[in-house]
Amino acid sequence: MSLLTVKNVGKRFGGLQALNDVNLQVEEGSVHAIIGPNGAGKSTLLNCFVGKLMPDTGSVTFDGTSLLGLKPHEINQTGVSRVFQTPEIFSDLTVFENVMISCLSKRDGAFKLNAIAALKSQNDIRNHAEEMLEDVGLLEKRNMNSSSMSRGDKRRLEMAMCLAQDPKLLLLDEPTAGMSRADTNNTIELLQEIGSSRKITKVIIEHDMHVVFSLANKISVLAQGTVIAEDSPENIKGNPKVKEAYLGEAQP
Protein backbone atom coordinates (compact mmCIF):
# COMPACT_ATOMS: atom_id res chain seq x y z
CA MET A 1 0.00 0.00 0.00
CA SER A 2 1.30 3.39 -0.84
CA LEU A 3 1.61 5.80 2.08
CA LEU A 4 2.64 8.92 0.20
CA THR A 5 1.39 9.52 -3.29
CA VAL A 6 2.66 12.34 -5.44
CA LYS A 7 0.73 12.87 -8.65
CA ASN A 8 1.64 15.16 -11.54
CA VAL A 9 3.28 17.72 -9.31
CA GLY A 10 4.68 20.77 -11.08
CA LYS A 11 6.27 23.91 -9.67
CA ARG A 12 7.59 26.90 -11.55
CA PHE A 13 9.80 29.66 -10.18
CA GLY A 14 9.63 32.48 -12.71
CA GLY A 15 11.27 31.10 -15.85
CA LEU A 16 12.50 27.93 -14.18
CA GLN A 17 10.38 24.80 -14.26
CA ALA A 18 11.70 23.33 -11.01
CA LEU A 19 9.37 20.34 -10.99
CA ASN A 20 7.68 18.96 -14.05
CA ASP A 21 4.96 16.34 -13.76
CA VAL A 22 6.54 14.41 -10.91
CA ASN A 23 4.91 11.13 -9.93
CA LEU A 24 6.03 9.18 -6.90
CA GLN A 25 4.68 6.39 -4.77
CA VAL A 26 6.22 5.72 -1.38
CA GLU A 27 5.25 2.27 -0.17
CA GLU A 28 4.47 1.75 3.47
CA GLY A 29 7.47 0.39 5.36
CA SER A 30 9.93 1.20 2.62
CA VAL A 31 13.03 3.38 2.68
CA HIS A 32 12.68 5.47 -0.41
CA ALA A 33 15.61 7.57 -1.57
CA ILE A 34 15.30 10.52 -3.89
CA ILE A 35 18.60 11.28 -5.56
CA GLY A 36 19.70 13.51 -8.35
CA PRO A 37 22.33 16.03 -9.36
CA ASN A 38 22.40 19.56 -7.94
CA GLY A 39 19.41 21.62 -8.96
CA ALA A 40 17.35 18.60 -9.91
CA GLY A 41 14.47 19.74 -7.71
CA LYS A 42 14.92 17.39 -4.73
CA SER A 43 14.50 20.02 -2.06
CA THR A 44 11.66 21.71 -3.92
CA LEU A 45 9.85 18.37 -3.97
CA LEU A 46 10.41 17.87 -0.24
CA ASN A 47 9.15 21.37 0.49
CA CYS A 48 5.94 20.44 -1.31
CA PHE A 49 5.42 17.59 1.19
CA VAL A 50 5.84 19.67 4.32
CA GLY A 51 3.68 22.69 3.64
CA LYS A 52 6.47 25.11 2.87
CA LEU A 53 5.74 25.31 -0.85
CA MET A 54 2.46 25.01 -2.73
CA PRO A 55 2.85 23.16 -6.04
CA ASP A 56 1.30 24.81 -9.11
CA THR A 57 -0.25 21.58 -10.32
CA GLY A 58 -0.85 18.06 -9.08
CA SER A 59 -1.58 16.53 -5.71
CA VAL A 60 0.25 15.17 -2.67
CA THR A 61 -1.70 12.63 -0.64
CA PHE A 62 -0.53 11.12 2.61
CA ASP A 63 -2.40 8.23 4.13
CA GLY A 64 -5.60 9.23 2.37
CA THR A 65 -5.49 12.97 3.17
CA SER A 66 -4.27 15.71 0.88
CA LEU A 67 -1.31 17.64 2.26
CA LEU A 68 -1.75 20.60 -0.03
CA GLY A 69 -2.70 23.81 1.72
CA LEU A 70 -2.00 22.42 5.19
CA LYS A 71 0.36 24.30 7.50
CA PRO A 72 3.61 22.66 8.64
CA HIS A 73 2.24 21.90 12.11
CA GLU A 74 -0.92 20.37 10.69
CA ILE A 75 1.09 18.13 8.38
CA ASN A 76 3.25 17.06 11.31
CA GLN A 77 0.17 16.21 13.34
CA THR A 78 -1.00 13.84 10.59
CA GLY A 79 2.18 11.83 11.19
CA VAL A 80 4.95 13.31 9.06
CA SER A 81 8.19 14.23 10.82
CA ARG A 82 11.10 15.97 9.23
CA VAL A 83 14.85 16.01 9.74
CA PHE A 84 16.58 19.09 8.36
CA GLN A 85 19.74 19.44 6.34
CA THR A 86 21.41 21.31 9.21
CA PRO A 87 20.02 19.95 12.48
CA GLU A 88 17.23 22.22 13.70
CA ILE A 89 17.02 21.98 17.47
CA PHE A 90 16.14 24.32 20.35
CA SER A 91 19.66 25.47 21.03
CA ASP A 92 18.89 27.48 24.21
CA LEU A 93 17.36 24.47 25.89
CA THR A 94 18.81 21.29 27.31
CA VAL A 95 18.84 18.01 25.43
CA PHE A 96 16.11 16.65 27.66
CA GLU A 97 13.87 19.70 27.21
CA ASN A 98 14.30 19.42 23.45
CA VAL A 99 12.86 15.92 23.45
CA MET A 100 10.16 16.80 25.99
CA ILE A 101 8.79 19.37 23.56
CA SER A 102 8.30 16.67 20.95
CA CYS A 103 6.64 14.40 23.49
CA LEU A 104 4.31 17.21 24.57
CA SER A 105 3.38 17.92 20.97
CA LYS A 106 2.60 14.23 20.48
CA ARG A 107 0.42 14.08 23.61
CA ASP A 108 -1.25 17.50 23.61
CA GLY A 109 -1.52 18.28 19.92
CA ALA A 110 -0.90 21.62 18.26
CA PHE A 111 -1.99 23.75 21.23
CA LYS A 112 -2.84 23.20 24.86
CA LEU A 113 -2.85 25.85 27.56
CA ASN A 114 -1.11 23.83 30.22
CA ALA A 115 0.18 26.70 32.31
CA ILE A 116 -0.21 25.57 35.90
CA ALA A 117 0.83 21.91 35.85
CA ALA A 118 4.50 21.45 36.71
CA LEU A 119 6.76 19.99 34.06
CA LYS A 120 8.43 17.99 36.83
CA SER A 121 5.23 16.10 37.50
CA GLN A 122 4.56 15.07 33.90
CA ASN A 123 5.92 11.59 34.44
CA ASP A 124 4.57 10.10 31.22
CA ILE A 125 6.33 12.79 29.20
CA ARG A 126 9.56 12.46 31.14
CA ASN A 127 9.70 8.69 30.81
CA HIS A 128 8.90 8.88 27.14
CA ALA A 129 11.64 11.46 26.56
CA GLU A 130 14.16 9.39 28.52
CA GLU A 131 13.37 6.32 26.44
CA MET A 132 13.91 8.24 23.24
CA LEU A 133 17.25 9.62 24.45
CA GLU A 134 18.29 6.12 25.45
CA ASP A 135 17.42 4.88 21.96
CA VAL A 136 19.74 7.35 20.27
CA GLY A 137 22.42 7.06 22.93
CA LEU A 138 22.15 10.56 24.39
CA LEU A 139 20.77 9.76 27.82
CA GLU A 140 23.95 10.67 29.70
CA LYS A 141 24.02 14.05 27.93
CA ARG A 142 20.45 14.92 28.89
CA ASN A 143 21.35 17.97 30.96
CA MET A 144 23.74 19.41 28.44
CA ASN A 145 22.87 22.60 26.63
CA SER A 146 22.03 21.34 23.18
CA SER A 147 23.97 24.11 21.43
CA SER A 148 27.25 22.81 22.83
CA MET A 149 26.96 19.36 21.25
CA SER A 150 28.80 18.06 18.20
CA ARG A 151 27.10 18.04 14.85
CA GLY A 152 26.65 14.29 14.99
CA ASP A 153 25.02 14.50 18.41
CA LYS A 154 22.73 17.28 17.25
CA ARG A 155 21.62 14.97 14.45
CA ARG A 156 20.97 12.24 17.01
CA LEU A 157 18.96 14.65 19.10
CA GLU A 158 16.90 15.76 16.14
CA MET A 159 16.27 12.13 15.33
CA ALA A 160 15.15 11.46 18.91
CA MET A 161 12.76 14.40 18.64
CA CYS A 162 11.26 12.96 15.47
CA LEU A 163 11.03 9.44 16.89
CA ALA A 164 9.31 10.72 20.02
CA GLN A 165 6.38 11.64 17.82
CA ASP A 166 6.12 8.07 16.55
CA PRO A 167 5.67 9.28 12.97
CA LYS A 168 4.28 7.22 10.12
CA LEU A 169 6.60 8.93 7.69
CA LEU A 170 10.04 10.37 8.36
CA LEU A 171 11.47 12.82 5.84
CA LEU A 172 15.23 13.13 5.86
CA ASP A 173 16.72 16.04 3.93
CA GLU A 174 20.40 15.19 3.29
CA PRO A 175 20.89 13.84 6.82
CA THR A 176 24.67 13.50 6.39
CA ALA A 177 25.39 16.74 4.53
CA GLY A 178 28.66 18.28 5.68
CA MET A 179 29.50 15.41 8.03
CA SER A 180 32.81 13.65 8.41
CA ARG A 181 33.08 10.03 7.26
CA ALA A 182 32.86 8.81 10.85
CA ASP A 183 29.78 10.91 11.62
CA THR A 184 28.20 9.79 8.35
CA ASN A 185 28.74 6.14 9.26
CA ASN A 186 27.33 6.79 12.72
CA THR A 187 24.24 8.32 11.19
CA ILE A 188 23.82 5.37 8.83
CA GLU A 189 24.07 2.98 11.78
CA LEU A 190 21.57 5.04 13.73
CA LEU A 191 19.11 5.00 10.85
CA GLN A 192 19.56 1.27 10.42
CA GLU A 193 18.95 0.68 14.13
CA ILE A 194 15.85 2.82 14.02
CA GLY A 195 14.70 0.96 10.93
CA SER A 196 15.13 -2.43 12.52
CA SER A 197 13.21 -1.69 15.73
CA ARG A 198 10.34 0.36 14.29
CA LYS A 199 8.38 0.28 11.11
CA ILE A 200 8.72 3.86 10.00
CA THR A 201 8.50 4.67 6.33
CA LYS A 202 11.37 6.93 5.35
CA VAL A 203 12.00 9.27 2.47
CA ILE A 204 15.65 10.22 2.16
CA ILE A 205 16.99 12.97 0.00
CA GLU A 206 20.69 12.46 -0.41
CA HIS A 207 23.78 13.23 -2.43
CA ASP A 208 26.04 10.65 -0.88
CA MET A 209 25.69 7.35 -2.78
CA HIS A 210 27.30 5.45 0.07
CA VAL A 211 24.43 6.53 2.33
CA VAL A 212 21.79 5.87 -0.28
CA PHE A 213 22.94 2.36 -1.11
CA SER A 214 23.35 1.44 2.56
CA LEU A 215 19.82 2.42 3.48
CA ALA A 216 17.37 2.59 0.62
CA ASN A 217 15.37 -0.25 -0.81
CA LYS A 218 13.90 1.89 -3.53
CA ILE A 219 15.41 4.83 -5.39
CA SER A 220 13.88 7.55 -7.52
CA VAL A 221 16.24 9.58 -9.64
CA LEU A 222 15.27 13.17 -10.27
CA ALA A 223 16.88 15.21 -13.03
CA GLN A 224 15.81 18.63 -14.27
CA GLY A 225 12.56 18.44 -12.42
CA THR A 226 11.36 15.04 -13.62
CA VAL A 227 11.71 11.49 -12.36
CA ILE A 228 13.90 9.74 -14.90
CA ALA A 229 14.13 6.37 -13.17
CA GLU A 230 12.56 4.53 -10.26
CA ASP A 231 13.84 1.13 -9.27
CA SER A 232 15.64 -0.99 -6.71
CA PRO A 233 19.21 0.06 -5.80
CA GLU A 234 20.78 -2.75 -7.84
CA ASN A 235 18.97 -1.81 -11.02
CA ILE A 236 19.59 1.90 -10.53
CA LYS A 237 23.33 1.27 -10.42
CA GLY A 238 23.29 -0.11 -13.94
CA ASN A 239 20.72 2.27 -15.44
CA PRO A 240 22.26 4.14 -18.40
CA LYS A 241 19.85 7.08 -18.04
CA VAL A 242 21.02 7.64 -14.47
CA LYS A 243 24.66 7.52 -15.49
CA GLU A 244 23.93 10.06 -18.18
CA ALA A 245 22.20 12.42 -15.73
CA TYR A 246 25.08 12.26 -13.30
CA LEU A 247 28.09 12.06 -15.63
CA GLY A 248 26.89 13.49 -18.92
CA GLU A 249 26.54 11.61 -22.23
CA ALA A 250 28.93 8.75 -22.96
CA GLN A 251 31.63 9.49 -25.55
CA PRO A 252 31.16 7.52 -28.76
Partner: peptide
Protein backbone atom coordinates in the same frame (compact mmCIF):
# COMPACT_ATOMS: atom_id res chain seq x y z
CA UNK B 1 4.11 29.33 34.22
CA UNK B 2 7.92 29.23 34.05
CA UNK B 3 7.92 25.62 35.20
CA UNK B 4 4.92 24.42 33.18
CA UNK B 5 4.72 22.72 29.78
CA UNK B 6 3.27 26.01 28.53
CA UNK B 7 6.40 27.83 29.72
CA UNK B 8 8.63 25.32 27.97
CA UNK B 9 6.75 25.88 24.72
CA UNK B 10 7.19 29.63 25.12
CA UNK B 11 10.92 29.23 25.57
CA UNK B 12 10.99 26.98 22.51
CA UNK B 13 9.26 29.75 20.54
CA UNK B 14 12.07 32.14 21.42
CA UNK B 15 14.70 29.62 20.34
CA UNK B 16 13.42 28.13 17.11
CA UNK B 17 9.94 28.69 15.73
CA UNK B 18 10.65 26.72 12.56
CA UNK B 19 11.52 23.57 14.45
CA UNK B 20 8.49 24.02 16.66
CA UNK B 21 6.20 24.28 13.64
CA UNK B 22 7.71 21.15 12.15
CA UNK B 23 7.25 19.45 15.52
CA UNK B 24 3.53 19.88 15.17
CA UNK B 25 3.02 22.88 17.43
CA UNK B 26 0.96 25.84 16.37
Amino acid sequence: IFNSPFGLMLRAIRTNQTRLNYTGVN
